[in-house]
């Protein structure tokens, strides 16, 4: 599901807004925050799956962004720059806190029960969630950013510091792993 990139409110250009933030205008900081917070928080929540962690990651993202906004050179969009900070904070945070979910559970463990079409929907969501959780960090991040949050490969490459080709490869491989994990649903879905 591709989501629209937030536009700066009030007709201000991104450069003007950044200049006002650099100048220390509190209203400009709030404006920047309001423009981007939804997307930053949503991605943090997709990655963390936990409200408290998503809040912490989002807050830290904006605190860091305001500290470093003077270094922003408009080489990418402000949104991409913010997400690069956000993804880095979220991934580092997730590594540190070791969330209760066991992402490394083998995909095979979640498969193997034949079900009727009527029951497919709730089980599919559970199975898909388990399959996404079981992806390794690099595949999971690219899959969530591209296929779920609608980031482009350019944006993902910039945010993760990887080439566009690597982003595409990781997406291809993550989709293949998910298809494999959900192979027994094929008959249910494709008819």
């Amino acid at each position: 599901m591709a989501l629209p990139v937030p536009q700066v409110r009030g007709g201000l250009s991104e450069r003007q807004l950044v200049a006002r933030v650099v100048a220390g205008e509190p209203t400009a900081q709030r404006e920047l925050y309001e423009t981007h917070v939804d997307r930053v928080f949503r991605l943090a929540f997709r990655l963390a799956g936990d409200d408290e962690l998503a809040r912490d990651f989002t807050q830290l993202t904006f605190i860091r962004a305001f500290e470093r906004i003077g270094d922003f050179r408009h080489e990418s969009s402000l949104s991409t720059w913010l997400h690069a900070i956000g993804v880095s904070i979220a991934l580092n945070g997730l590594r540190k806190v070791k969330t209760a979910r066991n992402r490394e559970a083998p995909i095979e463990a979640a498969s193997g029960i034949g079900i009727s079409r009527r029951e497919a929907e709730p089980d599919l969501k559970t199975r898909l969630a388990a399959a996404i959780d079981s992806l390794s960090e690099k595949y999971r991040t690219v899959f969530l950013m591209h296929d779920v949050e609608g980031f482009t490969h350019d944006e993902i490459g910039t945010a993760l510091g990887i080439p566009v080709g690597t982003s595409k490869t990781r997406l291809f491989q993550s989709r293949a792993k998910l298809r494999e994990a959900l192979a027994d649903f094929r008959g249910e879905w494709i008819s």
Binding site: D38, F41, R42, R46, L124, K125, L144, V148, L182
Partner: peptide, 18 residues
């Protein structure tokens, strides 16, 4: 199948409120 997975994945870790 990719499209179906993508559609189903939209419900993965969705925040209730921001």
């Amino acid at each position: 199948m990719d499209d179906l997975i993508k559609a189903a994945a939209a419900a993965y870790n969705v925040p209730r409120t921001i």
